[in-house]
């Protein structure tokens, strides 16, 4: 039996690396005595696969993992048992059974959204958004594979939503993940700094979602099943 789960990672856990998060999840599965399936081979490990890596320094509202079980289990039972042992900063939101043949999260996720929470002073957000999307080229220094080289982000920036209330600003940006353009949150951060924001005005950054983008629609990994 194979399961796909959605969970949130709170700000307290934002400094965990990907491997740390894997260990946390595996240890939680053991504590909950979930009948996970083990891989064959010299060094058997739990058949757990996480979605795209949540970068160190970010928390996440909608993250995903797939897990293979050695025997069938009631979904509610699974959720309750696992939730009971998870740290309070990590919450299981939703679980569904998926087909054994369903492609992995890593293969299907091709977009993500990041939220930047802002403290004044910062430029007018509506105007900033309009100007940014009107530009045909947005280059920053690459933080990824081609470190240091100029990287063109424009084609990878799909959508921007802004909101200003009670002095707090909120910018949410939907970007491309994987090939051909992979837009990283720190590259977006640099873009903000280039276009009128200061480091001090960025109070918090988190990933609000992971998606499968089809046309102009964004589906969650649980909606494509």
């Amino acid at each position: 039996m194979r399961l796909r789960s959605r969970y949130s990672v709170g700000p307290e856990l934002k400094f965990l690396g990907n491997l740390d998060m894997m260990h946390l999840m595996e240890r939680s599965l053991r504590r909950a005595a979930i009948p996970y399936a083990l891989s064959e081979g010299f060094n058997p490990h739990i058949k757990l696969s996480m979605g795209t890596v949540l970068p160190v320094g970010l928390w996440g509202e909608n993250e995903y993992f797939d897990l293979e079980l050695a025997q069938t289990m009631d979904l509610l039972d699974f959720r309750q048992k696992l939730s009971a042992v998870l740290p309070s900063y990590l919450q299981l939101k939703e679980c569904q059974e998926i087909a054994d043949t369903a492609p992995s999260l890593m293969k299907i996720i091709n977009a993500a959204s990041y939220v930047y929470l802002l403290e004044p002073p910062f430029p007018s957000l509506d105007k900033w958004k309009e100007e940014l999307l009107a530009r045909s080229s947005l280059t920053v220094r690459s933080r990824g594979k081609k470190k240091g080289l100029d990287k063109e982000l424009r084609t990878g920036i799909y959508r921007i939503e802004v909101d200003e209330s009670l002095n707090i600003g909120r910018v949410e940006i939907w970007v491309a993940v994987g090939e051909p353009v992979n837009v990283r949150y720190d590259e977006l951060g640099e873009l903000l700094l280039q276009t009128g924001f200061t480091q001090n005005s960025i109070a918090e950054v988190f990933r609000s979602g992971n998606y499968i983008r089809e046309g102009s629609g964004y589906l969650s990994p649980l909606e494509v099943l």
Binding site: R27, L29, R30, V85
Partner: peptide
């Protein structure tokens, strides 16, 4: 210990 930690 194993129940409470989940260590491998």
């Amino acid at each position: 210990q194993l129940q409470n930690t989940g260590y491998e």
